[in-house]
């Protein structure tokens, strides 16, 4: 009996692992669709952006970095701070996406963090929820 128990747990573990993996893959697939309809026009098919104009996402230290809150804010509110990004400035104004759900933002960020040469962690819904709370607090101050 104990033997079966062990096997059962093992099986459940495998199942759970498989499930989370496919959820993760689903995230990235969703994220890719969002990228293609909303982001590709500026950041281009290869994530390399347009020199001097639209920042590259592939190889960007911010995109693969740990400040998820900043990335969430950029996708939601757009971005036209014209600050130096990895040594260059970009002249275009990025479109805001106020209508994207937190889940969709998690998906598109997961896609850009794991595509091309980027190999960072996926972004979870909880992280986006948290980031939004943080941003709201900051805004209301």
């Amino acid at each position: 009996m104990a033997q079966y128990k062990g096997k059962g747990i093992f099986l459940i573990c495998i199942l759970l692992f498989g499930l989370t993996q496919s959820i993760q893959a689903q995230n990235v697939i969703n994220g890719k669709k969002i990228y293609e309809t909303r982001c590709l026009v500026c950041h281009q098919a290869d994530g390399g952006g347009v020199p001097n104009m639209n920042a590259p996402l592939d190889g960007s230290t911010n995109v693969v970095g740990n400040d998820i809150g900043r990335l969430v804010k950029i996708v939601k509110n757009g971005f036209k701070d014209k600050v130096e990004l990895d040594g260059y400035y970009y002249s275009n104004d990025m479109t805001p996406n106020p209508d994207l759900s937190n889940a969709a933002i998690a998906d598109v960020l997961s896609f850009i963090r794991t595509s091309w040469s980027n190999k960072a962690s996926l972004v979870t819904l909880a992280q986006v929820n948290n980031a939004n709370k943080g941003n709201q607090k900051k805004n209301s101050k």
């Binding site: 281009q44 098919a45 290869d46 390399g48 952006g49 347009v50 020199p51 590259p56």
Partner: peptide
Amino acid sequence: VTSTNKAKAR
């Protein structure tokens, strides 16, 4: 050219 940044010269 599919992605503008791949153009060698502009």
